[in-house]
């Protein structure tokens, strides 16, 4: 390398963990997008904005309670709920009237939502940079592979699989989850046997948005919370669900791992253009399997 340092095993190992914890955030956000995509068949362009709102709401809630540990945990619970509430209102008031229309109209509606939410965030929180402290038990770092690794990222490594398992249990074991999956495969049939499809859609949409909010709340102690954080994540989520297989939750997990790891290793090899690596991975995957690695639900 030009800078004269050699890539050691320790550096690789710690970048691997960094990539893995990044992948957990990406998974939580993109699984939400994948859920909406699977059931409603619409890429929710506003997903990134909801993620941003999740982060800002986490900031407000945590500072309301003095910014300590209690504030953090409350933020983690209530910020996603705030996001879910916003998406519920948007869905019931406007979005549901479009289900009979062309899919493009649904997509454009989510785009309109993104534009509106983006400016509302600017009105409420302004353009300043905000930050949250992680609770004390997750502050600092522990040495792994001989280099310090933030404790909070270890926490993320635990939360990611937990969310994956909960989500899996939810959509395979509960009735509403099973109905959602059925609606993803054949919406008309679900309607024909007397289930209110509109509410199934509402449920999937709100749950997907809740995951975006959760991702935003979880990421908030590790980044500076600011306007524009919606744009990066939405691109990443798009790519992840595209390479994973649209609507496939496990595909979102695989996609997130590919994305997070190529990104963090990319930083090691070519810092300025680390962003190129995940995109290159996407191009390779999609050349090899145009419909994504795992089976798309539709």
């Amino acid at each position: 390398m030009e800078s004269g340092y050699t890539i050691t095993f320790a550096a690789l190992g710690s970048q691997f963990l960094v990539g893995l914890s990044r992948a957990m955030i990406l998974f939580i956000v993109s699984s939400g997008m994948s859920l909406v995509l699977g059931v409603l068949r619409v890429p929710n362009v506003a997903h990134g904005s909801l993620y941003m709102i999740g982060a800002f709401a986490a900031f407000s809630i945590s500072s309301l309670f003095g910014g300590g540990s209690t504030g953090f945990w409350l933020a983690l619970v209530f910020a996603p709920l705030v996001v879910a509430l916003i998406s519920f209102v948007a869905e019931r008031s406007l979005f549901r009237h479009l289900y009979e229309r062309e899919h493009l109209m649904l997509l454009l509606f989510t785009f309109a939502l993104m534009l509106i939410l983006g400016d509302l965030v600017k009105m409420f929180w302004g353009a300043d940079y905000r930050s949250i402290m992680a609770p004390e038990m997750f502050q600092g770092a522990v040495p792994i592979f001989g280099s310090p690794f933030p404790k909070y990222n270890l926490f993320l490594l635990g939360v990611g699989p937990l969310v994956a398992v909960l989500l899996w249990l939810f959509i395979t074991k509960t009735k509403i989850g099973k109905i959602s999956r059925a609606a993803a495969v054949d919406m008309e049939m679900v309607g024909a046997i007397g289930i209110n499809v509109s509410w199934v859609f509402a449920f999937a949409f709100v749950l997907g948005c809740l995951l975006a909010g959760l991702g935003g709340a979880l990421v908030s102690p590790t980044v500076s919370i600011t306007l524009g954080m919606d744009h990066d994540i939405i691109m990443e989520a798009f790519l992840i669900v595209a390479i994973g297989g649209l609507g496939n939750m496990w595909g979102a997990l695989v996609g997130s791992l590919i994305f997070g790891l190529t990104q963090s290793f990319g930083v090691l090899f070519w810092p300025q253009f680390a962003i190129v690596f995940p995109y290159a991975a996407v191009v390779i995957v999609l050349t090899w399997r145009p419909k994504g690695i795992l089976k798309s639900v539709w």
Binding site: L94, M105, F109, A112, L113, M114, L115, I116, D119
Partner: peptide, 13 residues
Amino acid sequence: TLILGIILILLIF
């Protein structure tokens, strides 16, 4: 952009 979003929703509907 807020106004643009509202215009877009009006257009769609």
